[in-house]
């Protein structure tokens, strides 16, 4: 049985978990086993409706104490749940919480793990998972050599797929261990799309000349419904907040569309964005190295191109 961990925040199931369900359901079909989910805590989503992503059964530990993420507690509860359900493969989203617990759960289950998988495993001869390595510069095909297997999948690598279906919800009773952390403050950036969950990203670099010029980035992001991001020099100069910095040492993103404006494309920046499906580069320097990594490009002045592009997208959506 394939057991999919369904991650929630603020009592809402995360989009990356819907993708994990779609992936887990496809893997279960490939292996000829059932696709089941495990949800910790209580959510406001329609749980039976998770069947439309391919989930057949959901195990829920409906204890409100689990509405706050605690890596140690979640690891123990998930380990128990996986053992109780006799799961042969566990699937996680390779998101912030997935990174925190999937390897720990793997250790507890004596399972081999591949994090950041790109596609369904090849199960024709063993169990081989492909993942990106060297910050997107290569792929590795890795065999998981243990009876129980754990995979976490990169966001946007598989997509969310829907079908007809409804899933059964079963309460699972597990003793919740004592909390290992105490959350003292939560700060959410209001009104912005979180960069790590974004499908579309508009990113600005030094070519924009100063923080006062970010309106054209924000306008384009707004009309697209995109998150905003920036290059390292921009966040280092405090033109933009650090959480917007994408690149090797900042946030790594993998959206459907990454629009880079006034960013030259240093190798450290590319390492954070090269898993994006489509890359658009807008730069007035035709020699900018980013063009080599781009799918589409415009050589031009951002201050002219961006407002025109924003208007054209608005028109195309009208």
């Amino acid at each position: 049985m394939v057991l999919i961990y369904i991650d929630q925040a603020d009592q809402q199931i995360k989009k990356s978990s819907l993708e994990a369900i779609s992936y887990g359901a496809a893997l279960a079909k490939q292996l000829g086993v059932s696709a089941e989910g495990i949800l910790l805590g209580t959510v406001t989503d329609d749980l039976a409706g998770l069947g439309k992503y391919g989930l057949q059964k959901l195990h829920q530990v409906a204890d409100a104490n689990l509405n706050h993420f605690d890596a140690k507690v979640f690891t123990q509860v998930l380990t128990e749940a996986a053992k109780a359900a006799n799961a042969s493969v566990l699937v996680f989203a390779h998101n912030l919480n997935g990174k925190a617990i999937a390897p720990a759960v793997a250790v507890k289950l004596h399972a081999g793990i591949v994090t950041g998988a790109n596609s369904l495993p090849d199960t024709s001869n063993g169990f081989t998972v492909t993942k990106t390595v060297f910050s997107g510069k290569a792929f590795a095909q890795i065999n998981i050599d243990t009876p129980v297997k754990v995979i976490s999948i990169n966001q946007n690598c598989f997509g969310v797929h829907t079908q007809e279906g409804s899933c059964a919800v079963e309460a699972l009773s597990i003793t919740i261990p004592a909390a290992s952390i105490k959350v003292t403050a939560t700060h959410k950036v209001e009104g912005e799309i979180p960069l790590t969950e974004a499908n579309l990203v508009v990113s600005g670099g030094r070519g924009l000349k100063g923080p006062e010029n970010w309106g054209i980035i924000e306008d384009l992001a707004k009309v697209l419904g995109a998150a905003t991001a920036c290059s390292r020099p921009v966040s280092d100069s405090d033109w933009r907040p650090h959480h917007e910095h994408v690149g090797q040492t900042g946030v790594q993103v993998a959206p459907n569309l990454y629009i880079a404006v006034g960013i030259s494309g240093a190798i450290q920046h590319l390492a954070g964005v090269n898993r994006s499906k489509t890359i658009v580069v807008i730069n007035k320097d035709p020699e900018a190295p980013f063009f080599k990594a781009a799918d589409y490009g415009i050589v031009g002045d951002a201050f002219e191109v961006l407002p025109a592009l924003t208007a054209a997208i608005q028109k195309s959506k009208a």
């Binding site: 081999g112 591949v114 510069k137 590795a140 998981i144 050599d145 580069v281």
Partner: peptide
């Protein structure tokens, strides 16, 4: 628990389409 079977380099980008 795991073993690397092999590595691949990503297919080269087919080249930027300039507009």
């Amino acid at each position: 628990t795991t073993s690397i079977k092999n590595y691949d380099l990503p297919p080269a980008k087919s080249g930027v389409k300039l507009v």
